[in-house]
Design a protein around this nucleic acid. Structure first.
Length: 426
RNA sequence: GGAGAGAUGGCCGAGUUGGUCGAAGGCGCUCGACUCGAAAUCGAGUAGGCAGUGUUGAUCUGUCUCCAGGGUUCGAAUCCCUGUCUCUCCGCCA
């Protein structure tokens, strides 16, 4: 959510940001409503002031045993006017809030202006895609031949885009989760959290999933609960409605969680394999930062996520998302894309964003610079470190051998009970 | 699931026969005095949102906020209704 005062004072900047994102918002209507609200507010506050002073007087008169009937009658009508005006103001505020909640964040000045992913800007590459002397297979073929992932039974038991991991596949997934958590907690200074996987609507609004993106999520019927689409939601909302002591900043958390996504509107895309599932695992990194340090923190966050791929020996590139591809709440986002040989392209495996104070304002997460200074909004950041399912896919594809077996990256071997290779069971 | 109790400022905790209550008191914190310094002691200060003023986030003014949302009333932390959460006991359960 943007600062209403900022929108009021910088309508042109907001309009430009909206245009760059190709988003339609009725900003002029918003500005008119805002002005009307303030006008009415002044009026009603004057009336309230009158009510307060006269009511006090009535109390004094009654105590002294003097009559106050005429004043009471007068106040009766004043109170009625106040009630009416409060109602009008409330309606205006509701409209304002509704619009405000659907205005996306303003892109940072270093974000390239562009229409879609074609206009994203490649920042760097790491690692060289391996040259195969045979035709690399897609990960779902490898996995099925090794009998470590069962897509068909996943569909039977749940539906499309659900899978069973089995044997070494299940263990690989678990190994990756532990490897990532260990790396981020031991080497990168993140404190681990294991959050609830179900949250309420307030939390979803706090991080920006609601009200605009309700159809992307699974809602539990007859409740106010949602399955989390990412650990970003519970972990960022950890400090909702709180004022953090300055000495605690920056706060770093990492969290494993399953993620549930309805993938509405993605029918027909990535129908095979692990790339797009209704349920997948992810290790998430979340930061709460001083405003002036948040872009520094973003760079460090991306590097922390990259480190996972480097240690796993998976080639990747980092791209700076353009205005048209940028998520609703983000001011700037780096995607990390891992090399997938069978696709012959880089595919998103991590998304690291700085939300500046956009989520903090929605969720009311603040900090106090000095003991006596006013609370300010923190900046929030998060990034995948990494999406585990896609990492499994990348390992299977990049480490596959011609005989159908898959080598285990050395850093993962301790987590896999020392095995160096996944081979088909006899 | 059944029965009961409760939700007040950074924390603890008064206030529940409605009327100078944004809220006593204590702790904590900040500043000052004392001290070579510290402790102790003494004095002062110590919520947030919105709006106006100023103008750039000093000050001043108004207003709202005592879990949330409604209601009664000239006036509610105090009365009524609904919801949420917490605690205790019982039942059930991993």
């Amino acid at each position: 959510m943007l600062d209403i005062k900022f929108v009021r004072n910088n309508p042109d900047a907001v309009k430009k940001a909206l245009a760059d994102r190709a988003v339609d918002v009725y900003l002029d209507e918003f500005l008119d409503l805002d002005e009307e609200r303030r006008k009415k507010l002044v009026e009603v506050e004057q009336l309230k002031n009158k009510r307060n002073t006269v009511s006090e007087e009535i109390g004094r008169l009654k105590k002294a045993g003097e009559p106050a009937d005429d004043k009471i009658t007068e106040m009766r009508s004043v109170s009625q006017s106040i009630k009416k005006m409060d109602e009008e103001i409330r309606e205006i505020e509701e409209k304002l809030q509704k619009i405000l909640l659907t205005i996306p964040n303003i892109p940072h000045e270093t974000v390239p202006v562009g229409a879609d992913e074609e206009d994203n800007e490649e920042v760097r590459r790491w690692g060289k895609p391996r040259e195969f002397n045979f035709k690399p297979k897609p990960h779902w073929e490898i996995a099925e031949q090794l009998d470590i992932i069962d897509f068909e039974r996943g569909s039977k038991v749940s539906g499309a885009r659900f899978t069973f991991y089995k044997g070494a596949g299940a263990r690989l997934e678990r190994a990756l989760i532990n490897f990532m958590l260990d790396l981020h907690t031991r080497e990168h200074g993140y404190k681990e959290v294991l959050p609830p996987f179900i949250v309420n609507a307030d939390s979803m609004t706090g991080t920006g999933q609601l009200p605009k993106f309700a159809e992307d999520m699974f809602k539990l019927e007859n409740t106010n609960y949602y399955l989390i689409p990412t650990a970003e939601v519970p972990v960022t909302n950890l400090y909702r409605e709180e004022i953090l002591p300055a000495e605690k900043l920056p706060v770093y958390h990492c969290a494993y969680s399953p993620c549930f996504r309805a993938e509405a509107g993605a029918a027909g895309r990535d129908t095979r394999g692990l790339i797009r599932q209704h349920q997948f695992n992810k290790v998430e990194l979340v930061k709460f930062s001083y405003p002036e340090k948040s872009y520094e923190e973003l760079e460090k966050l991306v590097e922390n996520a990259e480190k996972v791929l480097q240690l796993l020996g998976l080639p990747y590139r980092v791209v700076n998302l353009c205005t048209g591809d940028l998520g609703f709440s983000a001011a700037k986002t780096y995607d990390i894309e891992v090399w997938l040989p069978s696709f012959n392209i880089y595919r998103e495996i991590s998304s690291c964003s700085n939300f500046e104070d956009f989520q903090a304002r929605r969720a009311n997460i603040r900090f106090r610079r000095e003991k006596k200074s006013k609370p300010e909004f923190v900046h929030t950041l998060n990034g995948s470190g990494l999406a585990v399912g896609r990492t499994v896919a990348a390992i299977l594809e990049n480490y596959q051998e011609e005989d159908g077996s898959v080598s285990i990256p050395p850093v993962l071997q301790p987590y896999m009970g020392g095995i160096t290779k996944i081979t088909a069971e006899k």
